[in-house]
């Protein structure tokens, strides 16, 4: 299903300018290819490094979108990931062999971005002009305000302790935009179970967020 299509690796990299890079993102482009190769070869430790690489790219996209989104002051995480994905797609030097791996990694980078953004926004207090980020799978009439990302992350962490699979599903779904079927592929459980777990996790999270509100 997740078939492998090898592409020619071309020595063609976009510069990641140092001033725009986030802390920890000192990865040279050529390293990224090597990291990717290591990961493709099954080295799970390469994953954290990949997130380091993805992060500044994702941030650039988010900043560009925030500038153009001032009217709404909200930003959907999944739209950002899609956009991010397209940016990566243009890089022919990156050879992704596994769809699920990629999406899961992108979801983690996304999560980190949203949390950092929320921290910065809180530090500047409201009215900073920075738009709030929303999770389209959770924004309902129930939660009139956009989800507070820090609260959300706190409860998500608690969920990790309670039931890791449910937390992982939330992460993949909310930050990576993956559907039940795709999450099922990534974590190797059938889609029906994923749906049930998601519904339960959502109900649990909403209950906590409502109280916090």
């Amino acid at each position: 299903m997740l078939s492998i299509l090898l592409r020619t690796v071309k020595p063609m990299f976009r510069e990641v300018s140092p001033e725009k890079s986030a802390p920890g993102a000192h990865t040279e482009p050529s390293d990224i290819t090597r990291v990717l190769q290591r990961w493709n070869a099954g080295d799970e430790g390469a994953r954290a490094q990949l997130i380091d690489y993805m992060y500044p790219e994702l941030k650039k996209i988010a900043q560009a979108r925030m500038r153009s989104e001032r009217e709404d002051h909200t930003l959907q995480a999944t739209a950002l990931v899609s956009e991010f994905f397209l940016q990566l797609a243009k890089r022919e030097d990156l050879v992704w062999q596994n769809r699920g791996h990629f999406l899961a990694t992108a979801a983690q980078a996304m999560k980190r971005l949203l949390i950092d953004h929320a921290r910065a926004r809180n530090a500047a207090k409201r009215g900073s002009g920075e738009p709030a980020l929303t999770l389209d799978f959770l924004s309902t009439d129930l939660l009139r305000q956009p989800v507070d990302m820090l609260d959300f992350n706190r409860y998500l962490d608690r969920l990790w302790e309670e039931e890791p699979r449910m937390a992982q599903i939330v992460e993949l779904h909310c930050f990576g935009g993956l559907t039940y079927v795709e999450i099922a592929e990534v974590i190797g459980v059938d889609a029906k179970t994923i749906r049930r777990d998601w519904q339960l996790a959502r109900a649990w999270l909403v209950g906590h967020l409502k109280r916090a509100d």
Partner: peptide
Amino acid sequence: FAAQSLQSLYFAKLWES
């Protein structure tokens, strides 16, 4: 292309047959 999310669709279009 068997893909449900946009992200997977992009992946399939770019790197799969």
